[in-house]
Simulated assay, not measured.
Amino acid sequence: MGRVVLVTGVARHLGARFAERIRREPGVELVVGVDTEPPRHRPEAAPGPLAEYHFAPADLRRPAIARVLAEYGVDTVVHLNVSATNPGAPGRAAVKEINVIGTMQLLGACQQSAGPRRLVVKSTTAVYGSTSRDPAVFGERTQPKTLPAGGFAKDAAEVEGYVRGFGRRRPDIAVSVLRFANIVGPGADTPLGEYFALPVLPTALGYDPRLQFVHEDDAVEVLRLAALDAARGTTNTGTFNVAGDGVLLLSQCARRLGRPTVPILRPALGWVAALARQTRVSDFSPEQIGLLTHGRVVDTTQLRETFGYQPRFTTPEAFADFAAAQTGGLLPPERLTVLTDRLAGWLGGPEHEGPERDPHSPTADRS
């Protein structure tokens, strides 16, 4: 028998791509895709022998996932259903349930099963937060100055806590947690990608944060290495930052996209984010406001030394590939009209005296 790999979150672009990629791996006999709905767009499979693929419709919040593990004899679990949004969730509360409760159910099923030997969990560098007191570069052992108060970052921090507890209870299972920087690429479907798709980019007045990206191709390759290399005598276990080398300022991103920016006072930026969510233009979360104010950069030494892998795309190259896939007219005219009219009404109130000044802001010492 070859490897049996279970992949959660296959309804999303990254999950679908990884499921197709792992089918081409020698030694993999079966790939089981799990989600509440099948992939909307399955990538074209490359020529060559492919492992068998089964889609198992299942809600991770339900105990049925234990039956899936037992039915297919799963030995490797790749948990990608931890995301800021979910196609099967109508609101933030449902997304949190899928992220946290879904992970707890999956870990409980793995703990009770004798089959799994490898667990890979997708996380995010958002667990470090984004504040004015942050260090210039985060390492895997760096503790955030302020714990995430809500949103996807808090979900990911809770998920990582449950995974650490699982690792202590099942030391026989190799566990890897991959903290991805913002994933970009021609097909990446993320809230930050929605933000960059706006025809005009609202920014925090007085700030120009440093940003890091990882290309979707590199994300898939790192997942592949984490899922399979333990079976070849290596020990790719632990927590790893995953990002392309280098950084980009938000202003550089806007110029490369050809997008104008509208600097807005920090409190007003929260109103704009709420408006964007109400009109479903973009999932502009509070944690994203923090990122677009203070930025975030992580160290990837552990990834290179442990995995022996250097991301093929640097941060500027990954963003350039994303920018090349963008086109004009990304928003329906009626939605854009609603957004601009309401934004004009909100910002037409009393004038503020001036921008807030922060000696630790990116424009103060990192520009």
Score class of each variant (00 low, 15 high):
8 T>I: 08
8 T>E: 05
10 V>K: 03
12 R>G: 14
18 F>V: 09
19 A>P: 01
24 R>P: 00
25 E>G: 00
27 G>A: 08
29 E>M: 04
30 L>I: 08
34 V>N: 07
34 V>Y: 02
35 D>F: 05
39 P>A: 15
44 E>R: 15
44 E>M: 05
47 P>T: 12
55 F>Y: 15
61 R>C: 07
64 A>Y: 00
67 R>D: 15
78 V>S: 06
79 H>T: 02
82 V>G: 00
84 A>Q: 14
89 A>F: 02
91 G>F: 06
95 V>A: 08
96 K>G: 00
99 N>C: 06
99 N>E: 10
106 L>Y: 04
107 L>Q: 09
108 G>F: 01
111 Q>R: 15
112 Q>S: 13
112 Q>C: 02
117 R>F: 01
119 L>Y: 09
119 L>D: 02
122 K>W: 04
124 T>H: 10
127 V>K: 02
132 S>I: 02
145 K>N: 11
146 T>A: 14
152 F>T: 05
157 A>V: 11
157 A>K: 07
166 F>L: 08
171 P>Q: 14
173 I>E: 00
177 V>L: 12
181 A>Q: 06
184 V>D: 03
187 G>A: 13
191 P>C: 10
192 L>N: 02
196 F>W: 14
214 V>Y: 10
221 E>F: 05
232 R>Y: 10
235 T>K: 14
235 T>N: 11
237 T>A: 13
238 G>K: 13
243 A>H: 06
244 G>H: 09
247 V>W: 11
250 L>A: 11
253 C>V: 15
263 P>Y: 13
269 L>T: 01
272 V>N: 02
279 T>W: 06
282 S>T: 14
282 S>W: 03
284 F>S: 04
290 G>P: 00
299 D>G: 08
305 E>F: 04
313 F>H: 14
315 T>P: 03
316 P>D: 13
317 E>F: 02
318 A>T: 12
321 D>A: 15
340 T>L: 14
341 D>L: 09
346 W>V: 01
347 L>W: 12
348 G>R: 13
348 G>M: 03
352 H>E: 12
353 E>W: 10
361 S>C: 08
361 S>P: 01
367 S>I: 11
